[in-house]
Each structure stands twice: as C-alpha cells, then as structure tokens.
Design a protein around this nucleic acid. Sequence first.
DNA 1: AAGCAATTTGACAGCGTTGTCATTTTGGCA
DNA 2: TGCCAAAATGACAACGCTGTCAAATTGCTT
Lengths: 345, 345
Amino acid sequence: MKVTINDVAKLAGVSMKTVSRVINKEPSVRKKTYDQVMQAVKELNYQPNIAARNLAGTSSFAIGLVYDNPNAYYVIDMQNGVLSRCRDEGYELVIHPCESNSENMAEEFVTMIKRSRLAGLVLTPPLSEQQAIIDMLDELGIHYVRLLSGRAQEAESSANNCIFVDDYAAAYEITEHLIQLGHNKIAFVLGDEEHKSTAERLAGYRDALKAHDIKQDDTLLYHGTYSFESGVKGAKALLADGNPNQITAILGGNDEVAAGALFAARLMNIEIPGQLSISGFEDSPFSRQTWPKLTTAHQANNIISEHAARLLFSKTRGHRKNDKEVSHVFTPSMVVRESTGRVTQ
Amino acid sequence: MKVTINDVAKLAGVSMKTVSRVINKEPSVRKKTYDQVMQAVKELNYQPNIAARNLAGTSSFAIGLVYDNPNAYYVIDMQNGVLSRCRDEGYELVIHPCESNSENMAEEFVTMIKRSRLAGLVLTPPLSEQQAIIDMLDELGIHYVRLLSGRAQEAESSANNCIFVDDYAAAYEITEHLIQLGHNKIAFVLGDEEHKSTAERLAGYRDALKAHDIKQDDTLLYHGTYSFESGVKGAKALLADGNPNQITAILGGNDEVAAGALFAARLMNIEIPGQLSISGFEDSPFSRQTWPKLTTAHQANNIISEHAARLLFSKTRGHRKNDKEVSHVFTPSMVVRESTGRVTQ
DNA sequence: AAGCAATTTGACAGCGTTGTCATTTTGGCA
DNA sequence: TGCCAAAATGACAACGCTGTCAAATTGCTT
C-alpha cells in the first residue's frame, strides 16, 4: 500500500540516495541508472512523501499565495495560474487570504511561514506594494515574487523578483480609444488610493489626454475603491444634477467599478453607449455579463500568476539555466465591446 | 531563530512528549503542567512544524477541498469557510480544483492524497455526488465530508458525513413567491442535468405548482447548465417568437443563469420586472450587481463550508465530545429584490 | 502509614526523506 | 597498462515531531 523510496531503491538495485537524486532531477546520475530508477518508480507508482521531503530538506515543497482582494474572479485566476505551475513541479500551494490593514496581519503571516516552512511566496497587490512586508520577508530570508503595477522601463531597473503589469499603458490605450471616438469629457472613477495601480491608471489617463491636447479637469475624477458599489456611487456623483460637466464617457477603475457605473446609469435612465460610454479594466468574466458588455483592457491574470510562480521556482530550486529569462512585464490589451461608442451630440 | 519542541520542553522543565501533549490538547495533563508549557510556548513564540507533525503522526495536518465549479464566488466562499476553520485548528488547506469528467481525474486525485497524506477531504458538488469517487475514498480509507443537495428527511437517514442544502425547499419557496405575485406561467432554466441540485430544484418547483393547482407544462422547462450563457440561451429560447407560452416569470437555475436571462430580456426589450419576473438562486454577490437586482435564495456558502470543515475535524481528530452534534441541513432563505414583481396583464 | 489503582509523565525509537561526506567507478592520458 | 582527477554512488545521521510503553507520581482506601 505505502511505497517508500526504499522500495524503489531495492527494486532498481541502487541506494535510496540515488533514487532521491533522480526524483529531484539532480545532475550527476548516469542515464542508465536514471532509467532504471524511473522504471522502478513507475512500476511501484511511487509518490514522494511531501512531509518527509519538507522535514529533511532545506526548503519545503510548498509555496504560498498571499492576497487581500475582494474580487473573486481575480483571486481564482491567480490561484489557478500558480497552481498549474505547482502541479508541474510537485509543489503544494498554501493560500493565504488576509486583510492588509488588520492589526495582526504581520503576525499571522509569520505564523504561516514558520509553520509551513514555505519555499517562497507570491505576493499580489496591494500587499506586494507594502514596504514593511517586503522588509520583513527580506529579514526572514524568504523568497518571494511580487506582482506590481508598473511600466516597462521600471521593470528593467527593478530587482529580479517582480512581475509588472503595465497599467499605465493600458489606461493610456483605453483613454485614447475614447478620445478617438470623439470624447473629450472623460470622467474616471478611480480605485483604492493606496493601490499603485490606481496611480498608474490615472497617469496613463492623464498622459493620453495631454497627448491629445485635452484639458485636464479634476472635477471629472472620483476617488473611490475597486468595488461595484464604488462604481455606482462614483457615477451618481459625477452625473448628478443633470450632468453639469457634460461627461460623455466614464472610465471604470476596474470591471466591477464599470459595472457599478453601468448600474447607476441605468437608474438614471442614461443610454449606454448612446448617451454615455463606459469602459472597464481587467476583462474579468464579469465584463461579458453586464449589459451592454464592457469595453475593457484584457489582463490575463492566470498567465501572469503562472509566470510569477515560474519566476519563484527559478529562484527557489536548482536554478536550472535553461529557463533563464522570464518575462517581467505584461501589458493589458484593449478589448472593444459594446459599452463604448462614438460621441453624439 | 528556529524554536523546536525541545526548547519549549527545556524552558518548561518537562519532557518533549508532554509539550506535545499540550500542543495537541491531549487529555491527562495536569493543569499546572499545562500552564507552564503554555507559558513557555508563548515566551518562545513556538510554532509547531507541520512537516514534522505530518511525518511523525498518524494523520497529517492538512485537509483538502475538492471542487469542479466555474463559479468563482462559490469557490471563494467555500475556500474561506474551510480556511477559517483550518486556521483555528492549525491545519493547512490543500485546494484541488479539477474537472470531474476528465480522463485522469481519479488518478490526479489519488496522487494528491498520497502525496499530502491528507487528513480528510471536503467534497463539493458535483464530485460529492459521484459514487465512483465515494467508493474510491472508502476503499482508500480517507475521511471525507460531502456537500450535497438534499432534503431534511434525507439528512436523517444518511451517513454522518454529509452536509445538505435543501434546494427543494428553496425552489418551492421561490416558486410560491412567484405564484403569490400572480404568476402561473413560470418558466425554469435548469442547471446541469448531472447535478443533483438541478433535480431537487425542479422537484421543489413542481411541487409548489401542484400545491397551487397550476398545471405543469414541460415546454416551460429549458435544460441548460449553470452558466451565464446558458441563461441567455434559455431565456431566448423560451421567449422566442413573441413568447407564445405567455411566460411571465423565469426561474434561473442559479444567479448566473438568472443574470443571463436578464441579459437576454434586455436584448429583447423586455422590461424587468414589469413584463417579466426573473429570480436567481444562491445569492452570490452577483445577484446584487445586475440591474435590476435579483430576487434569489440566500445560500450561505461560507458558513456551509465552515460547517463541513467542522464536521470533518470532528471525525478526524480526538472526537471531542463537547462539539457533539453538528447541524447537517441548510435551507436557503428567500431574498426579495427588484427582479420579481406582481404580474400585470 | 501502607498499599494500590488511576493518573500523569518521560525515554526512546521511528516517520520517509535529504545533506554530508566517504567510497567506488569511470574515462582520459601518459 | 597504470594513474589520477572527475563523476557517480552509497552509508548514515539528521530533520522535529509523535506513538509506544515503561516509570513515576498522585490520591484514594484501609
């Protein structure tokens, strides 16, 4: 019933240590030996015991995914991306949702790391942006990869453990798309202030306006959060009193915000996109389930997170030279659907 | 830096084994000794090493959550419920998304269990309903708890490792709600045929109609899946050609389906709830983000899954007699929002 | 105060793997 | 052929905890 490394060793006629070498893809095992061992592994359907490996080895066979994000679609995508890499590598994934502003977060964090002796961590925003956390991890000597909002040039000068999503470029593109449709009163319902993505997206928006000589008007900015409710509130606020600013388009901080704006527009009997264009950000399944479907910027979270895991593993394990360079910047690309249209007057 | 059980033992002036007893809440430790040990644990901020516990102990300190469900909200709720229990108990959670109809699912399944030596499993539908899986687990001697769709009376006669959600009752209630609003041409866009919840919800719907002497009409049934797209298709099919059946209400198999139906209605310029009532099922955040907001049946997935974990632990560990009875049936309760209204003609 | 069962504690050997370091084998070269 | 460095393999002791079983302590009872 229970097959140990010892059984395999006996069957293959080698020592346990050699089997261990094969399992761990260590170099300096003769091809012939390797084959013998693999043969035995298959024959016995041997599965290495993770607990024993964790205990005996220097680093454990588990990585953690840390997030503080209410967006279920985002989280699931992240999980699945990391998970698929973990399966390939024979690692376990320990998920760690948390609240970044809670008192004992840091403590819980350390508890988890100590308990599981994690080989590394994938940090998602906004936690990946908190210097205090980064410092703590450095101090503890924990490997980690950060998912961050940032631009291509930033990526080059950055430490080698970051994955960037170029929100700036994406926001620029979306804004330009709206401008090309004839909009010049474009409002923006921003996400959480403390998220770097909020600043990046705002910067992209601003620069696009500037590039097209459209005057900036901060009364068109609504400072909200990355939530549906915030989208509703923001749109209501912006369009209140008969839309004094003559807004013709609203950029949502993300798809949920955009959906919220859509909801508000409906309440106010505003036609989308006839009277008002709305765009999202992220391309979560969400954006295909609103009416009308959202124009948005596609961000492949599952692929991004898979890359993050890949990068983490490349630092963690035997530093195999073949997968040397891992790409570090992802730029969301625009998806035009039905929520944006040419401006009419 | 690294605190072991041995350090604690020394500080507390007892043996390692005694510390172990305290950590594991085993009985027969004198109060005084217990306090001493706990004191030392705190002082050193000792965290038991999971890998070592797993390796040395009979059962491991990790449970698995298995799901095959495209609904992100559902999955996240499940995870969080189970996770909160795991944290309390000092267990790890291994998440295992899978595809129940894939070839090598069973194999992957076993691999995972062997690798991690899981203490137990929480199975969600539709996997929890597959006899082949149950048999396999029984054979392997794995503890598990099943989340199932079923009625109160069923729960009593069932094995002691199931948590039931009374979809029948919920569907009955929703249907009755619609009937009381004057509807008698109530269509139903059903979920996946192989999910037991689909049959249960249909039965509830049927019995409610019967109880109110409304004739059953199977042309009002659309056999779909639990997806948004299915809701769109279903509603389109049901209402095609000028709504020959004079449908005044549509029951969605779940919230996504209902949202899809809503979407289709909008495409067809049908007013909700003026010309058509639509109801959902599950009360995912989703149902508050459609327009209009969905009437639905609230199903507290995070609480349900927490109970499942609780039940699993009660079978796994020291069978503490104090948390003897765990409730086994959850009945979703209706939440009336804006997508259902009185019938008008 | 002695005797005894019940309770509490401890010593020690594993759990299944990997790290260390010693030993054997290999293949190239004189 | 013999020698030697390099490559491949193996023996054995950890890793940090728990299970087993034996020893010590407790608190009754007589």
